[in-house]
Design a protein around this nucleic acid. Structure first.
Lengths: 134, 134
DNA sequence: GACCTTGTTAGACAACTGTCTTAGGATACA
DNA sequence: TGTATCCTAAGACAGTTGTCTAACAAGGTC
């Protein structure tokens, strides 16, 4: 029974996000930030979560003066990438296009974003058609 | 300590997918399908998973002759919807556009899909600009 | 020195997941 | 009728997640 690969559960993700925002934080700083954002956790809970993140190798800690300072090792970009890939694999037959379609159909974009999306798309199509041109 | 809302773990999702594909299935049918797809599970494992799905209200069972026949109650569409929403909320600040951009940038679409995406987008932009036109 | 305040550590504990073993009820066929 | 099949039921058991209590160390304060 192979050990499961490490995942990032919701609660850990919440504290990781704080580290991305602040760059680094002590338990107490993270706690304050999370409290401000509505999470009613105890100090020990946050400490545990940071600890678990560290055993998974996703953050590092560095003792400074009184308290440990935690820094993210994994970036938001990486986490997003993994999550999206896994979603596409599991629910969109590995076809990112299906997910894009789904998103556009069910969530209207605001005009600025729509424009940006279009330009990315045009660029992509431009290359493709220049390349195939049969 | 509020009970956590029911989720659909990976293993359950795999059997649910079989139900979506086949429309309905007995434990054995699901097992065969999963085996064919490479999942090396025992009969009892599949039975347990279907059972858990049923307690979560995501499938129903109906005794036919020998065995129970399970049918999905929740659709693939619904599950996709929820997953996408939660991904967007958790990692894209609730902005679906960011996810769309990310997808387009990191996963090139094939031309047919690109075309389809563009048409959906054009339609959307058409409405918007007609509507705001200030 | 006796006490707070902050911090860390260890561990508790229930719910959820991933998998399976085993016991027991039907069905089927020799 | 006995035995091989196939099914459900019950529950085991370890690993993960969500959250916390409680013990204990180090730095100030009176």
């Amino acid at each position: 029974m192979a050990k499961r690969p490490p995942t990032i559960p919701d609660s850990e993700l919440d504290v990781l996000k704080v580290l991305w925002d602040l760059g680094q934080a002590t338990v107490r700083e993270a706690l304050e930030t999370l409290r401000a954002a509505g999470r009613q956790w105890s100090y020990a809970t946050v400490a545990t979560l940071l600890d678990r993140l560290e055993s998974k190798g996703l953050v590092t800690s560095d003792r400074r003066e009184l308290a440990f300072v935690y820094k993210p090792v994994i970036s938001g970009q990486e986490v997003r990438q993994k999550r999206v890939n896994s979603l596409v694999d599991k629910l969109y037959q590995g076809e990112p296009g299906l997910l894009v379609l789904h998103l556009l159909k069910s969530h209207p974009l605001d005009p600025d974003q729509a424009k940006e999306v279009r330009s990315v798309l045009d660029q992509m199509m431009g290359e493709k058609s220049r390349k195939k041109e049969r």
